[in-house]
Design a protein around this nucleic acid. Structure first.
Lengths: 222, 222
DNA sequence: TAATGACTTTCACCTAATGAAATTCATATG
DNA sequence: CATATGAATTTCATTAGGTGAAAGTCATTA
């Protein structure tokens, strides 16, 4: 075991990387999966078969791998029960209110290692709106969400324009947990043409209010 | 490697079992997780830490483990994109129609090893109705879903009453994929007091029709 | 029919996983 | 305040389990 892997579990991590690769790809062949995680096909196959055996993956008649029922069960369970569900459930009304107030799409994001994941949304009602970022990740560096999630948690709003995709602007505020730590971020995402200086002031206030309200809810359960 | 584990990957499987245990429990201590999967705490801890390191799990200040952001990302992705999402998306209108037509809750189930998992639902509009089985599993043996999922796929309806929970009755029909294999089952679940002989005939026909319609949709995409 | 590319199996090597035991930590208890 | 109790953590000698190169299949394509 080299120094870099001292606290890990190589074989398990490889299996998880493969699981990730398969789910991210949706449907993938042995060869593609193996090269995605940089493993020899023989090793990848062994892991993929083990995952299939346990129902985490399916394999269709053409040999393509995709999500399996066991993973789906866990996915549904994790999103409907447990601590994570509590957070998204608590966030729902605030996201809805925020989307309505600003007319833009509102998102809830949490940190995943060196990235931020969007885990819930309330979409804008407008025809041109920001959609489909739930489940998606963006880097922590160079983004407003990233700065917010890594920040010390002062109740500030950060704005940013076009760092991930051009024409997308954001206003973000931190959600604080019981110990005053940043547990999530609430953001409003929209076309930069609309989320410009003038209207951003409105969004700014609304995002901040939503984040503070959610933080409050998390401290003392309703 | 013993004969029984010839095609598996022990270490990875243990990690996945722990992941399963944690998510199923929602929040769990090292000791409880270890005994849930029958491992020494030292071994369990190593795996749990590796999972935590990769973001699949979180650990709170009290040492309790729960789902982590990486898993949430994969959960959201798997349910919104990929083959599984395709199935549930295709099923949605049929489930809705079925729930409306029968006045009972409709479910979509797939097979997970020796169990059946409910992966989508349309709830009955009635006050007394069947709820909350999404993400839940039932045995294949002794249940109508089980018989349907393991069956040869003749387009028949199976009924059953109270085998999993008393007072719950079911009417189930198989959903067939491109090769004529059983890929899922559609069921109507309700209180046995309502789903009795007389009204079941209506449900029977409706379930069968819904399953056939969905099978048809899966063959030739809309 | 041969050549190509993708999947599968085999197997000798040896590292990475294992778990018993010792240690630390946190919390009850006398 | 000392001490006992239970849980989490670290250590480390042992070896079973994981590894991947290479050879073998299988299914297409030329």
């Amino acid at each position: 075991m080299t120094a870099a892997t001292l606290h890990k579990s190589r074989s398990a991590e490889r299996a998880l990387n493969l699981l990730d690769a398969v789910i991210t790809a949706g449907s993938i062949s042995l060869g593609d999966a193996a090269s995605a995680v940089d493993l020899p096909t023989s090793t990848a196959l062994r892991h993929l078969r083990a995952l299939e055996h346990d129902g985490y993956l399916n394999r269709d008649p053409h040999g393509m791998f995709s999500v399996g029922p066991t993973f789906l069960r866990l996915a549904l369970t994790s999103l409907r029960e447990g601590p994570a569900a509590h957070l998204t459930k608590a966030a729902r009304p605030h996201l809805d209110r925020l989307a309505e107030a600003t007319g833009e799409s509102a998102y809830l994001a949490v940190r995943e290692r060196s990235r931020a994941v969007y885990i819930a949304t309330a979409e804008s009602a407008r025809a041109i709106r920001h959609v489909g970022w739930v489940g998606r990740t963006v880097p922590l560096t160079g983004t407003a969400v990233g700065a917010t999630l890594t920040g010390t948690g002062e109740a500030t709003v950060l704005r940013n324009t076009g760092s991930v995709e051009p024409d997308v602007a954001a206003a973000v505020a931190p959600v604080l947990g019981t110990e005053g730590t940043v547990v999530a971020a609430i953001s409003v995402l929209g076309p930069s043409s609309r989320l410009d200086n003038a209207s951003t002031d409105t969004a700014t206030i609304a995002v901040l209010a939503a984040a503070e309200a959610l933080s409050h809810d998390l401290r003392g359960p309703t």
